[in-house]
Design a protein around this nucleic acid. Structure first.
Lengths: 207, 207
DNA sequence: CATCCAACAGTGGTCAGACCACCGGTAACT
DNA sequence: AGTTACCGGTGGTCTGACCACTGTTGGATG
């Protein structure tokens, strides 16, 4: 009675909820096997095609991996295929891109601020090394650079959200700032200049 | 011969390509109608269930909108259903309430800053009214207060992410700050004191 | 003539069943 | 013991059926 009254939620959406719940209660880990489609259909009281629509959604998001003749498994790693296909479709919508870019920058800025007090000289050196590597594009550098920062932020949720959005946008267009930006940021860390981060991003927004 | 030869590509993935091609050649605009599922099945030489799996994927990406009894239409606006679904799975793991609360605060702070330059006297008055209402708890006030700010931020993605996290956390524990916090924030808007936002949140974190 | 409403055709939503291709294990055979 | 053929389980796909819902249409009614 709860949900599907007013909204007439589709079956496969309910299936998604139930599968997630199943994953919770069974404490499934990445790589574990899900029940077969037929079994799920019977257990959850739905048609197999509805189950498949739900699984297709999860597969699309890179949450599961299906192997014909074997079964369906929880993904061990992040599937990029999803993101690529997605990007090939969507990203003409300019407002989406703008929102994404803006949000992305907010997350990066705040992560940079979160780790500020934690950063040691060693951390700063490490970032420096990343920046100096010549065998990668600026876009790659950006990814490695911030991935490190987010890891040190010690906020898994923030990190996940960032990674998701980043991959989302990065497949369509490279993401990076002027090289000087990264150098200045490192400089701020080195000179213990917290407030500079906000200003640094403020300048970035102007361009 | 076309699709399933070498890569064992699934039918629905081929369908996606074809539909996109169709959209291109027919110069479909947002809001336009797609052929019916049955017609697509016949035209593209596939079963209706495969067509549906493809459409389901597109629906996730917010590309199309299906209306029972009417048909399938290209989305007029970009929805973030993908993000929503993914978030529900991600949040499932990130049980760390601390991460959530931290991220939530970051989003709110940045939204507050985003709307700063846009805010008129009228907006400030409206927030004042929200705050003065006595018939609701502080938690409810918090929700209404920031919902308004996020709406004015003009960043749908940011708003979506916030709402998701907020609802997720709010069900577990009430979320609110001291009443004085909101008053001070309004005061900052009224006195055109941008930098104060950062400081205000800094104080909040200390407690 | 204008208005209303019932019947109808078309659409997405869902289910059940069938067949195929594939994988892994196992029993039979050499 | 090693090889092979088979078999059960799994995902991949198609078909046909029924339901619920929508917009239209055409006739009955005032």
């Amino acid at each position: 009675m709860a949900v599907s009254m007013s909204h007439k939620q589709k079956v496969y959406q309910g299936i998604l909820q139930k599968i997630r719940h199943y994953m919770d209660t069974q404490h499934l880990q990445p790589g574990d096997k899900l029940p077969s489609e037929r079994e799920l259909a019977q257990t959850l009281g739905a048609g197999r095609s509805s189950i498949r629509e739900a699984l297709r959604a999860m597969e699309f998001l890179g949450l599961i991996e299906t192997r014909r003749g074997e079964g369906t498994f929880l993904s061990t790693y992040q599937s990029f295929q999803t993101v690529e296909l997605l990007a090939s479709f969507i990203l003409r919508e300019s407002k989406t891109r703008i929102d994404l870019a803006e949000t992305l920058r907010i997350l990066e800025k705040e992560a940079a601020k979160l780790v500020f007090s934690k950063f040691t000289e060693q951390d700063v050196n490490y970032l420096q090394v990343i920046l100096c590597k010549q065998d990668q594009t600026l876009e790659e550098t950006h990814a490695v650079f911030f991935r490190y920062i987010f890891e040190r932020s010690n906020n898994r949720l923030l990190t996940k959200v960032w990674r998701l959005m980043y991959e989302f946008l990065a497949t369509a267009e490279g993401i990076s700032y002027p090289r000087g930006f990264y150098e200045e940021l490192i400089q701020l860390y080195a000179t213990n200049h917290y407030d500079g981060i906000e200003l640094l991003y403020l300048e970035l927004a102007k361009k």
